[in-house]
Design a binder for these strands. Structure first.
Length: 200
DNA sequence: CGTGAGATTTCCT
DNA sequence: GGAAATCTCACGT
């Protein structure tokens, strides 16, 4: 499991390094829910027009200004939660959005939390964690987990497999207008769980 | 399989 | 007032 220093690096380095690592949550019953991180996006501080922190601190984005290694969970489109790993020193307002996971442990619990039932179709299984709001639903992440420290909490990052540079694709971030020219979205080439794949 | 409407909070203009 | 770091469902192909 990474130390604090890992989360104080440059936000783009961390977004790329998180590919292949595991995002783990220990739920209220002590069950491990986990997935391999296969897609991320870097959001920088005040100079990144697409970042929530671009216009300064508000009640919603306050956690982004904590030191790296905290969890920033936001509510969006009136419906969904998305989760980020805060990066950089305190006050920078940088974070990495976790956009997609390849599910590894606790699949039955994830399926129940996302679909409220046990039996699902193959199409529903494909949609379990291939998007930022989908993986939050499956992992049971909501506003109660906003601000949690990943180094001590029930939610953490663990070492996984190493992804070589030739298998990392950098692309434009999804769902934004400002800053669309920056290639700050990273994903694993050919991975079936990536939300939107381009040329591979 | 593709397309389009709807759900409905937070923050900015 | 309206867009936003999204997803689901209905309906047509």
């Amino acid at each position: 499991m990474p130390e604090r220093d890992f989360f104080l690096q440059n936000v783009q380095n961390i977004a790329r390094s998180l590919l292949g690592m595991q995002f783990v949550r220990i739920d209220g019953n002590g069950q491990r829910l986990s997935g391999r991180i296969v897609e991320t996006e870097a959001y920088a501080g005040k100079h990144d027009p697409a970042s929530h922190s671009h216009r300064g601190k508000t009640p919603r984005n306050a956690v982004m200004f904590k030191p790296g290694g905290h969890l920033y969970v936001y509510f969006t489109y009136g419906m969904h939660y998305c989760c980020n790993v805060v990066t950089g020193p305190e006050g920078e307002g940088e974070a990495v959005l976790i956009r997609a996971l390849e599910p590894l442990e606790g699949l039955d619990i994830m399926i129940r939390q996302r679909y409220k039932k046990v039996a699902i179709t193959p199409q529903q299984f494909k949609n379990l964690t291939n998007g930022p709001a989908k993986l939050c639903a499956a992992m049971g992440i909501d506003k109660n987990m906003n601000g949690m420290d990943l180094l001590t909490g029930e939610c953490r990052i663990e070492a996984g497999i190493v992804i070589p540079d030739k298998d990392v694709i950098a692309a434009s971030r999804i769902g934004i207008r400002q800053g669309a020219d920056l290639l700050w979205r990273y994903y694993i080439r050919g991975n079936e769980w990536v939300s939107k794949r381009g040329e591979e």
